[in-house]
């Protein structure tokens, strides 16, 4: 009996604060690498190794093994009524990222482990802060919660079927089902085609600007989304644009942070 609940706790624990499907994270990092300066690329490989692109979701893996449990809090961002980031302590992505940039900047005085950890934060927390499920808006208190909603599972009229889903899980995994056989390279090409032209706009600004930026993207969503809301198949399909937007922004901004920290 205990084992069953332990298994359930593990599943829940893993799913409540994930970033994106692994292959999306890998694609985000591969595209980021393409947009890094040669100096940033060298430093990334120096500390994370040649197989850097496979080192995504390390915090999730650590949590699964019972380590770095506090890292779940690092993935969140909160925005006030004016969509300004709330950074009261270091339990959020913004504070963690700002500290990580400083560590990488001062890497000559830090241990290799400290720099590697900071680089993981730059990658994984930038990704996390662009995931709708990790963004909470003061104006919409339920945006903090992993609420349940109804999603259409096909059929029409009386024959339409619904399934209950969790909001945060949906924003981590709800779109990978459309592209389950895609390679990371295919995602990279897709990101370049659909959002590449916005690259410079995405890379400009500070971490706090980016948080506000995501607040503006997410706000219209919460105008209708909340506990027990209904998501049609068409809306599911259309919201992939918003999802891709987050992945693309995260990807180019990882490059911006590495470029800034290693110049």
């Amino acid at each position: 009996m205990k084992k069953i609940f332990l298994a359930l706790a593990l599943i829940c624990g893993v799913y409540t604060a994930q970033a994106w499907n692994w292959v999306y994270d890998q694609a985000a990092l591969l595209l980021a690498y393409e947009n890094m300066t040669p100096a940033a690329q060298t430093e990334l490989k120096k500390y994370l190794g040649e197989d850097y692109s496979k080192q995504v979701q390390t915090f999730q893996k650590a949590r699964k093994a019972g380590n770095l449990l506090e890292s779940a809090e690092w993935e969140q961002i909160s925005l006030d009524m004016d969509l300004k980031p709330v950074v009261a302590d270091d339990k959020n992505a913004i504070a963690q990222l700002e500290m990580a940039v400083e560590v990488v900047k001062n890497r000559a005085t830090k241990s290799n482990e400290e720099v590697a950890l900071a680089m993981h934060k730059l990658i994984e927390l930038t990704i996390a802060m662009h995931n709708v499920g990790n963004i909470s808006l003061e104006e919409f208190p339920y945006s903090k919660e992993d609420f349940e909603f109804q999603q259409s599972a096909g059929g029409y009229g009386k024959k339409e079927k619904f399934r209950t889903r969790k909001w945060k899980h949906f924003w981590s995994y709800g779109f990978s089902v459309f592209h389950s056989v895609w390679s990371a390279d295919m995602h990279v090409r897709e990101l370049k085609v659909c959002r590449g032209r916005n690259k410079e706009q995405y890379m400009a600004g500070s971490i706090r600007d980016w948080a506000t930026d995501m607040g503006k993207v997410v706000k219209p969503l919460y105008e209708w989304a909340g506990p027990d809301c209904y998501l049609s198949r068409l809306a599911h399909s259309q919201y992939e644009e918003l999802y891709l937007d987050g992945v693309a922004r995260a990807s180019y901004r990882i490059a911006a942070l590495f470029n800034e920290a290693t110049k």
Binding site: Y15, H169, S176
Partner: peptide, 10 residues
């Protein structure tokens, strides 16, 4: 519950 996490519309 576990299945609801893992299975999506395929």
């Amino acid at each position: 519950i576990a299945m609801s996490f893992g299975t999506l519309q395929k």
